[in-house]
């Protein structure tokens, strides 16, 4: 499925692996939290990039001790209205200092894209039939952010002066 980064489609270096699918010989894989827990040692020993996907009811805390091993954490939106992944992204970055890729997948609408990037999400998985200019446009429509950005270390007294859209790093 197409993956967007900064509003542009990129080549996806990850394979999203179902729980019953065999591990490929080469390449990065994303597995469920359950599979990660069951096969943690083998997945690390494999020596290839690995990531974990979290369902919306699985808190970021579940991965607190594993983040050093993970190249990506994928957050699911079962419905776009289910906004738990927004908090998960923030916790991954702010609380756990996670530096790897965070991606969002599932039912996401363009109008959520800027919120996601402001919270530290790098990539968004979008079904091919829902691609379009709205995604890139969504990153530039609003140039003012009232809240402190993820990268900011200043105080919230800058409440009204966070001008730039948070360009994800």
């Amino acid at each position: 499925m197409p993956v967007l980064d900064h509003g542009r489609e990129i080549e996806d270096r990850w394979t999203d692996l179902a729980d019953d699918a065999a591990l490929p010989a080469e390449g990065g894989v994303i597995v469920s939290l359950e599979r990660w827990r069951a096969e943690r040692d083998a997945l690390i020993a494999r020596g290839q990039p690995v990531g974990v996907r979290l369902k919306s009811n699985q808190l970021a805390t579940e991965l607190a001790d594993d983040l050093a091993h993970l190249g990506v954490v994928a957050l699911e939106f079962p419905k776009f209205r289910d906004g738990r992944a927004f908090s998960a992204a923030r916790e991954l970055r702010e609380r756990f200092g996670y530096k790897g890729e965070i991606r969002a997948f599932g039912h996401i609408i363009p109008d959520q894209y800027q919120f996601l990037t402001r919270l530290g999400v790098n990539t968004v998985v979008v079904p091919a039939d829902r691609l379009g200019p709205a995604w890139a446009h969504a990153l530039t429509e609003i140039s003012i952010a009232y809240q402190p950005a993820l990268q900011d270390h200043g105080t919230v007294s800058l409440l009204r002066r966070h001008l730039k859209p948070e360009v994800q790093g």
């Binding site: 906004g83 927004f86 996601l116 009232y146 409440l159 009204r160």
Partner: peptide, 16 residues
């Protein structure tokens, strides 16, 4: 007013 600005398009708390 501070809360209004803080909560306006809050990226984390718009799909509660």
């Amino acid at each position: 007013e501070i809360l209004r600005q803080w909560s306006t398009l809050h990226p984390e708390f718009t799909f509660l």
